[in-house]
Design a protein around this nucleic acid. Structure first.
Lengths: 140, 140
DNA sequence: CCATAATTAGTAATTATTACTAATTAAACT
DNA sequence: AGTTTAATTAGTAATAATTACTAATTATGG
């Protein structure tokens, strides 16, 4: 939380109570995604007239500075990014329980090797299936 | 085109003129994406009252049987998949000209190796940047 | 040609996101 | 602490994208 506030300040964003409450809520979602719609409902319970604009804008800004990640497959879901030291990584998402596992190793050279002369600027990777726990459960 | 019709039949889909006209139009987009909205406009020029339902449903069905691919990053864009023999592949998308380059080699083991006990069912990969032509042009 | 199950048209509703302006407020500076 | 100002938010509305529903139509198999 304090770290997140630091990051806000470092990027010249003002620390408003809407933003701290939003971060506080988001921080519950580090290993699973939450629907933007749920965020809207929650924030409206704190700030009855809160506008979509404010929420969508903040999520986008948080994403820009690495506090938040959108699910690749479904951009209406977001999660909190708490591992501020390792911003570049990818995700495995369990289809059964929704748990997200971070994938540290990234095979981007695998692709750049196939693209001589190209300028590779970015990439999106997401892996789906069943986590170890759900694999066990569903086989029993 | 004939191959696509075959695939439709093999999957027990009826061959309607709407579908053949849709495939005919889609077949122009093998190395770049087209907006679903453009497809709607085009199809309405042939069938004035054509419903969204019909177009969205057909695109989804075509995707299911491998005739069409949605862009990962922006699901409002689709392209025709003509290489029916190599369904599994990924894409490089040029941010400048929109040209799509197929990536044959796929490093999924890179991830499965990091996920002992997990069941990996699928994955989405997309790479972005400048193609070789645009890299040359933009550096001059 | 007939039967029928799939497909489509036509219309409407819903969901998700963006746009705009006036009011408010955090932060910087006296 | 008060003042300034640029960023942020509320409030409202509009737009974009997608899905839902039912009656009419049509491709396909017999």
């Amino acid at each position: 939380m304090e770290k997140a506030i630091e990051i806000l300040k470092k990027n010249n964003y003002k620390v408003t109570k809407q933003r701290t409450d939003l971060i506080d809520y988001l921080s519950k979602f580090t290993v699973q995604y939450v629907a933007i719609n749920d965020i809207v409902n929650y924030m409206r319970s704190l700030y009855p007239g809160m506008s979509n604009n404010t929420i969508y804008r903040n999520l986008k800004e948080f994403s820009d500075i690495g506090l938040v990640e959108y699910q690749e497959k479904n951009k209406t879901l977001v999660k909190y990014q708490c591992d501020f030291d390792h911003r570049h990584h990818h995700h495995f998402v369990c289809k059964n329980c929704g748990k997200v596992t971070e994938l540290k190793a990234c095979p981007i050279e695998f692709f750049t090797d196939q693209l001589p002369g190209y300028t590779v600027e970015g990439h999106a990777i997401e892996v789906y299936g069943l986590c170890a726990d759900c694999t066990k459960k569903l086989k029993a």
